[in-house]
Amino acid sequence: MTAIRVLHVDDEPDIREVVELSLALDPDFTVRSCASGREAVAMAAEWAPDVILLDVMMPVMDGPATLAQLRQNAATADFPVVFMTARTQARETDRFRSLGAVGVIAKPFDPMTLAALLRTYARPSHDPLEQLRTEFLRRVERDAEHLLEYRKRLDVEGRSPALLEQIRSTSHALAGAGGIYGFAQLSDVAADLEDVVTAEIGGAAPGAGTDRALDALIVAMEQCRCPAPLDARSLKRA
């Protein structure tokens, strides 16, 4: 499961230690601690926590001032901030929420329930497929370079069975994986190329069909990687 990153800010070392021990009861939590608001602002921008647990009463830069600094930076403006304070009367709680806090936790707190409470305020966990999707796009970039090279070789070297098989193998892999990562059109175009190449290898289709399908796949791959797709007519032939 994806770890929940908690940035805890409190000028009291004893409180920082208790919070760290409390959150360690939940293996999904990863905690970093800061002793001042200024330190927290810098660490939040660097570490991108899923939730910030912020003490209200601190010297130099108190909790509200720290929150204001976080909101002024686009990189940290959306991080959920939960105030921790002994001032939990309704009037005070409403004021803290009006400043942009998503919640308020009372001091003293229950160490056994702190993790469960913080979990309700944390940003949604990152999509576990996101890293795989990023790696797939890198693969698309590499495969696009290979297919461009194969396209040139078709014109220069002729339509050898070995070269056609390389094209078929690449398109087969893309057809199977594209839809999994949200690229259904890429998957369909790759499947079309696989079909026509298979037919050409078997002698049941002319090479022109393979060329058109290959050009279409190269364009579809470029559309996955950048906002300005290539036009098939602009593909340079050797």
Rank of each mutant, 00 (worst) to 15 (best):
A208C: 13
G182L: 00
H146D: 15
E157A: 09
D110Q: 05
A74Q: 13
Q223D: 15
R38L: 14
Q131P: 14
A122V: 04
R87C: 04
L129N: 07
A204M: 15
L193F: 06
M221W: 10
V56R: 07
R233S: 13
D11R: 04
Q89W: 08
R212W: 13
P80M: 08
R159P: 14
S98K: 03
V102D: 03
A191Q: 15
T30E: 15
T30A: 13
E92C: 05
N73G: 11
P128C: 11
P161M: 06
L217Q: 00
I201L: 14
A86E: 04
A48P: 09
G63T: 01
M1T: 14
T170P: 06
P80E: 10
W47N: 09
I15F: 14
I15D: 13
D195H: 15
A173V: 14
L154H: 07
L164G: 09
S234D: 09
R153L: 13
E200W: 11
S33G: 04
L21G: 07
T198M: 15
H126C: 14
V82A: 02
C224K: 00
S125P: 11
A190K: 03
E39H: 08
F83P: 06
I52S: 01
E17K: 07
V219N: 01
A48R: 12
V140K: 00
E39V: 05
T30K: 06
D127I: 06
Q185T: 12
G209Q: 04
P108D: 03
V60W: 04
R138H: 07
D62W: 05
D78N: 12
R123V: 10
V51E: 00
T113F: 00
A144C: 11
C224T: 05
V31L: 04
G176Y: 12
T170R: 07
S22L: 03
E46F: 05
A173K: 12
D211M: 10
D50G: 04
L25S: 13
I15M: 13
V41Q: 05
A228G: 11
V19T: 03
K107Q: 03
G63F: 00
K236V: 13
S160T: 14
F96M: 08
V41S: 01
M221E: 06
H146V: 13
A65M: 02
A75R: 10
Q185E: 10
V6S: 04
P27M: 05
F183P: 00
